[in-house]
Amino acid sequence: MGARGAKDGNMIKVRDIVALLDAEVLSGENKLDEEVKSVGASDMISDILALTNPGMIVLTGYTYPQVIRTALVTDLLGLIVVRGKNIAPETITYARENNFLLMRTRGYLYSSCGKIYGMGLRGSDAGK
């Protein structure tokens, strides 16, 4: 079965992305059935603050606890850390304390974004 996508008219759930990227879920396991409506990628705090929409999933190479705080302030649905990076234990603890969806994939940023884009999901600049 191929990846399900928005272009088929199907709703895309967190678990579809987890399967596509072979990602591990480090926190927020109860959110796997939530719908994903848009996705972004950034390593800069200010960009995440300014350019995301509430409910987005963001791919990042950023692993400090700060990233969870940023995501919580901006109402993100979840974060995917790329390149299988080591994540500080404080970051994971902070995510768990707030039941925040934190995932990790071995894929690189570009390829992971490409795969998700291929499912039919677009970014916060879609239509602009």
Binding site: M44, I45, S46, D47, L49, A50, Y64, Q66
Partner: peptide
């Protein structure tokens, strides 16, 4: 290195 210093701080305050 910690993801700060994008030079967007005041611009973002203005935006929000």
């Amino acid at each position: 290195e910690r993801g700060f210093g994008a030079g967007m701080g005041i611009a973002n305050m203005k935006r929000f």
